[in-house]
């Protein structure tokens, strides 16, 4: 805009004679909106009329230069990925859909879904406990988060798996009496799968409790007050009024956690549990094709994360209802709009 002042002056002088001609009828709207006929232009100052001018967009040469540099870099990376034979893409392709890998992928997804769901449900309960008026519930919830956030997941996992060493049998009965309803060997109860789920779930619950608590705190107190004044019961207040509104701040962090969990499940290799990562380890220990097989696992993790990101986008959009005046267009809608405008333009010309 640095050139604007001189431009305006020029424009003003150029339009001066035109403005003087407004008195004659039939001049058209162009001059009419420049000067109201009732008010003649003040002496020494002509009203400007820019309606006949062509608008030239500002140029951004550095933006183009930056784009070119990045595109060049990107091309170089892709070129080396494609042409360097040591990536062994043929091996990657060979193992990518191998039966054992797919089975491992299934296990990874199973662990993620179960531990994620249970973790967030438990986390929600812990968050409500933490926000309750009972000092006992508050401190139990706090202690839970404290313990599980301050010990390494690896240690937790090994502890659960070796629970049978600490407690040989697990029994259900009346405490402080000899009455027992059933009794079971700990090692049969806590399998690899159970240990993995226990470890991942409890750890996840500790983190999600804090995320959910943060979300709940972000909702205006007036919402709870209004709900209470309307006689809406406490549980319904939490689930129907507060939680949906808390979701907007919970979701981005929650998806961070779930994406972290997808890859975090690889930690169960310490239990020799054959999920995706453990499976490729077993394979490359046999075939010695370490890098290509790590790539197989990596690509699958990328696929899962990409799918989750799409989910995240739409779920966040769902909970944005009412929080924004008009929802932004989805990529699909944007694409459709882009093409309709294109076709309309083509039809016009």
């Amino acid at each position: 805009m640095t050139i604007a002042p001189t431009d305006v002056e020029q424009a003003a002088t150029r339009t001066a004679p035109q403005a003087a001609g407004t008195a004659s009828p039939g001049e058209g709207a162009q001059t009419n909106n420049a000067v109201p006929p009732a008010l003649p232009p003040a002496p020494g100052r002509a009203a400007a009329d820019y309606s006949g001018y062509r608008i030239v967009a500002a140029r951004h040469p550095w933006r183009w230069a930056g784009t070119a540099v990045v595109a060049l870099g990107l091309a170089a990376v892709l070129w080396s990925l494609a042409t360097n034979p040591r990536w062994e893409w043929d091996v990657v392709a060979q193992w990518f859909t191998a039966e054992s890998v797919i089975r491992g992928l299934g296990e990874t997804l199973k662990l993620t879904v179960i531990a994620g769901a249970l973790g967030f449900v438990l986390g929600f309960i812990l968050a409500l406990m933490r926000l309750s008026a009972s000092p006992l519930l508050v401190s139990v919830s706090w202690t839970f988060s404290w313990i599980f956030r301050s010990t390494p997941l690896l240690v937790q996992m090994l502890l659960w798996y070796n629970l049978g060493y600490l407690y040989e049998k697990i029994s259900l009965g009346i405490p402080f009496t000899s009455v027992t309803f059933f009794e079971v060997q700990t090692t049969t109860l806590v399998s690899q799968f159970a240990a993995a789920i226990l470890g991942l779930t409890l750890n996840q619950a500790a983190y999600s409790a804090e995320i959910i608590r943060g979300g709940i705190l972000s909702v205006d107190q007036g919402q709870l007050e209004a709900a209470a004044a309307l006689g809406i019961p406490a549980w319904r207040r939490s689930t129907r009024i507060v939680l949906p509104q808390a979701m907007r701040s919970i979701l981005p962090t929650a998806f961070n956690e779930i994406i972290g969990l997808v890859k975090g499940t690889s930690i169960v290799y310490v239990l020799a549990y054959s999920e995706l990562f453990y499976t490729v380890q077993v394979i490359y220990n046999r075939t010695q094709q370490v890098l290509p097989l790590l790539l197989v696992a990596t690509l699958w993790y990328i696929v899962i994360t990409s799918v989750l990101s799409v989910f995240q986008y739409y779920i966040e959009r769902h909970y944005a209802k009412g929080a924004v005046r008009t929802l932004p267009l989805t990529p699909l809608q944007k694409a459709r709009k882009f093409f309709t405008i294109r076709t309309n333009a083509r039809n016009l010309t």
Partner: peptide, 27 residues
């Protein structure tokens, strides 16, 4: 006892009608 607040305190994620319908159904 109905109450109307200074800051309205409408439930932001519910439509006008849903705001009105919630309490009669639940309470």
């Amino acid at each position: 006892i109905g109450m109307v607040f200074q800051n309205f305190n409408l439930f932001g994620h519910l439509t006008a009608l849903e705001n009105v319908v919630e309490a009669p159904v639940v309470a």
